[in-house]
Write a protein that binds this DNA or RNA. Sequence first.
DNA 1: CAGTTCAATTGACATATGTCACAAAATTCA
DNA 2: TGAATTTTGTGACATATGTCAATTGAACTG
Lengths: 192, 192
Amino acid sequence: MVKEIENFRDYLAQIISMDKETFDIAIKYFEAEHFARNEYFVHEGQSCNRIAYISKGLFRIYYLKEGNEINTCFCKENSITSSFNSFINHIPSTETIQALEDSVVVTLSSENLGKLFRESDIWQTISRLLTEKECLRLSERAGLLSFETALEKYKNLLKNQPELIQRVPIQYIASYIGVSRETLSRIRAKIR
Amino acid sequence: MVKEIENFRDYLAQIISMDKETFDIAIKYFEAEHFARNEYFVHEGQSCNRIAYISKGLFRIYYLKEGNEINTCFCKENSITSSFNSFINHIPSTETIQALEDSVVVTLSSENLGKLFRESDIWQTISRLLTEKECLRLSERAGLLSFETALEKYKNLLKNQPELIQRVPIQYIASYIGVSRETLSRIRAKIR
DNA sequence: CAGTTCAATTGACATATGTCACAAAATTCA
DNA sequence: TGAATTTTGTGACATATGTCAATTGAACTG
């Protein structure tokens, strides 16, 4: 089935214009994979040697802090997910990535990405642009976490990523915005 | 004076190995600049069309939130500073960058960076690697800001960037770790 | 060097948020 | 469908932190 590959093509087309052939040559390096709900893309401690374009579904990234799961990111369809630090620097991942819904992804191993780098400069550029996107996301998140009240942070999320509240359990949302489960629950009661 | 250019060369050498000539060709695009203490590299609202390698000195990055300055980053010698989102996407900066000490930098305009991209792939790679570094820094910062007590955050800073406490006014440190000036002051009193 | 401004500290107090315990609701799965 | 499990919501309470005000200390300036 090639639908997910086509989705990936469209996704990249939004980032950079690219010859059909350039992409087609790369297809051999891609791999379609299915993740059932609750399955793991990578576990903390494992090296994450591939990146995934999410064609369908939803993942969360979290790490453990004193036994509690801290969610740092929710990655939905038509975006990229990976444990970037692990992927880039070939070190064990400090975070776990888990499917929250049945998901279909297109993966690319770091080995194959290396090959693509050698085959065409465009992959180097794509990689840079995607990294820049990730940077932007992270700085927005850092801004959100500092100096906002729990209420403001939740409203902010409602504004920027309203679907998440429908698709992600509230307990996960809580740690994502840096408040306790109970506090978030009370905030939600107040807003209604 | 070329000392700051040589520092920049050494800095890049740590990131990627590079022909002497490749760097030398690029030198014509670089510009050495001095910033006196309290001078601004970029103001909020301005477009930040250049990036700076800091050969000597210290800068802070901050934005205004309800009249208060929120410091998001301190950039010291032998590192890069810029308002990245503005620089990359050619949009007005949401943040201000100010010298905290007399500083000497090597700047590169986005226009000239574009030229370098066309002259040699290596600048594309360097750009990606620097962006990846920035990503890492940001995700660490996000981790620090969420789910740490004020005390933990301060201790963390002491551990990871102890010089900052010597070089940066405490009030700036406070907003950097996301606590009030007064709270930080009390924490410091307790630790001693 | 005195005077002024700015930065850091400290106290008193209000409050937002975390924690623990339990109840209610929703979801899962046999 | 119904029991079991998980998730969400509430209450009571403790506490960390913010806010406002006053004080002390340091740094700059003429």
